[in-house]
Design a protein around this nucleic acid. Structure first.
Length: 420
RNA sequence: GUGGGCGUAGCUCAGCUGGUAGAGCACCCGGUUGUGGUCCGGGAUGUCGCGGGUUCGAGCCCCGUCGCUCACCCCA
């Protein structure tokens, strides 16, 4: 095959689907702005160490899924596999942690992981994320969750659920880990699985295989090892969630794939997607700033998968029709009419009316066909009669009804501008 | 990295126990010299993923290869 193909496993969007993608991403961003978050725009590649130290060497993301290469100066560079570590790097680099905190940030863009592609899993995928840095209140934990939840609701989604748990603080986790390791040592596991358990025993809780689930059913749960502070914080989070009416399920088996999480962690799953059903997730990362060389500041955030959320919207049929519908399409009939139409087009656009016209030398029938295809709300015919009268014939495309056959350009602008 | 499924027209796919290719949608033209979406009539379209083998003959069988896809590990 001599034709070029996109690299394996990337997601691509072009019309008309790209309008849906744009719509979904805009809704997510809008919800973040509504809650007082501000844009942070970062490079898609970083010093590799930002991720190895930030995300954690033991994670699958770092150990086998990174796009890493050497640049011309011999530096090790990695395409970002997630957003939080880069945000922390920027916050520390620009000294936002010295007197500028707390700060609320949001970001969007492509992320990269070299995995085997699958439904809803791409090597280049899109996320919208927020980070609330320097806040310790349980209310902020809930705010972050609520921003995601209201974004989903704004998109008309209903078939999703929220799982939450708490990973506690370092002290709680260490106590639990000791007992969990002891429990796992007594299990009969295959080599790959027990190797995984050595790196991070919590991962076994998330295994989809029935036999592993059975083995782990009686394992000691981290939730039972939370110390006083951790319990208090988690209880507060749950109470506030109840107060504001967000439904959730405490899932002690939930495990996140990134090492930096502490305390509250959460995940949204959509029930109509395939195996990759997570549409967003996040949590607290109170030690991350410190481990990247910044001051000891806490943070919490989420990452939402735009591609998967789009799929969920499609599955639920919750997206509006006629996204990016233009207001008017002009069908000129003759050559002089074309010149006039283009001039009018320019005026209309200056007036803020979205419009297009039939280009090329098409007969009226062809021009009307183009008007139909454009999905425009109104059609405007300009031919010899209209040139002579200086007025156009406005038509409602959906019904074919001719609204007026004698509109001057300024009347047209007035009319469409108002209806908009 | 491991396992399953699939590569036929622009798209979705059919193609019997091997006899050299079809439908729907989309597209173009016409029915309607200045009115689209419905309807009717007509039309164009394929190295059947690629390479090799078996056969008088391969879209179909065999081997290889590339690609896509779903799932596992893991994750948005």
């Amino acid at each position: 095959m001599s034709k070029f193909q996109a690299p394996k496993g990337v997601s691509e969007y072009f019309p008309p689907n790209s309008n849906q993608f744009e719509y979904v991403r805009d809704q997510l961003l809008r919800t973040a702005r509504l809650a007082g978050y501000n844009l942070i725009e970062l490079p898609v590649f970083e010093d590799t160490e930002v991720f190895t130290r930030g995300v954690g060497e033991s994670t699958d993301v770092v150990s086998k899924e990174m796009y890493t290469f050497e640049d011309r100066g011999g530096r090790s560079i990695t395409l970002r596999p997630e957003g939080t570590a880069g945000v922390m790097r920027a916050v520390i680099e620009h000294n936002l942690d010295r007197g500028q905190l707390p700060v609320k940030l949001f970001y969007t863009g492509p992320f990269f992981r070299a995995e085997r592609p699958q439904a809803g899993r791409y090597r280049q995928f899109y996320q919208v994320g927020i980070e609330a840095i320097g806040y310790t209140d349980p209310e902020i934990d809930v705010e972050v969750i609520a921003v995601a939840d209201s974004a989903f609701k704004a998109l008309g989604l209903t078939k999703y659920k929220l799982n939450i748990t708490s990973l506690g603080d370092t002290e709680s986790r260490q106590a639990h880990r000791k007992d969990l390791m002891k429990y796992i040592a007594g299990l009969d596991l295959d080599e790959a699985t027990s190797a995984r358990a050595q790196i991070n025993p919590l991962r076994l809780f998330d295994d989809k295989r029935a036999e592993i689930k059975e083995l782990m059913a009686k394992a000691p749960l981290l939730l039972d090892y939370l110390n006083k502070d951790s319990v208090q914080h988690f209880e507060a989070v749950k109470n506030i969630l109840n107060d504001i009416g967000i439904k959730y399920q405490v899932n002690p088996y939930m495990v996140r794939g990134l090492d930096y999480y502490t305390g509250t962690t959460f995940e949204f799953d959509h029930e109509m997607l395939g195996a990759q059903s997570g549409i967003g997730g996040g949590g607290r990362y109170d030690g991350l700033m410190n481990s990247l060389g910044g001051s000891d500041v806490s943070g919490i955030g989420f990452g939402l998968g735009v591609d998967r959320i789009l799929m969920a919207c499609q599955a639920e049929g919750s997206l509006p029709d006629n996204l990016n519908q233009i207001e008017l399409f002009i069908a000129p009939i003759s050559h002089p009419a074309k010149a006039l139409a283009f001039k009018l087009l320019t005026q209309l656009r200056i007036a803020g009316i979205s419009c297009d016209m039939a280009f090329g030398d098409r007969a009226l029938k062809g021009a009307m066909k183009a008007a139909d295809k454009s999905g425009a709300k109104y059609g405007l015919v300009i031919g010899d009669d209209e040139i002579n009268s200086g007025m156009g014939q406005l038509k409602l495309m959906s019904s074919g009804e001719i609204i007026s056959s004698s509109l001057t350009p300024s009347e047209l602008i007035k009319r469409l501008g108002k209806n908009n």
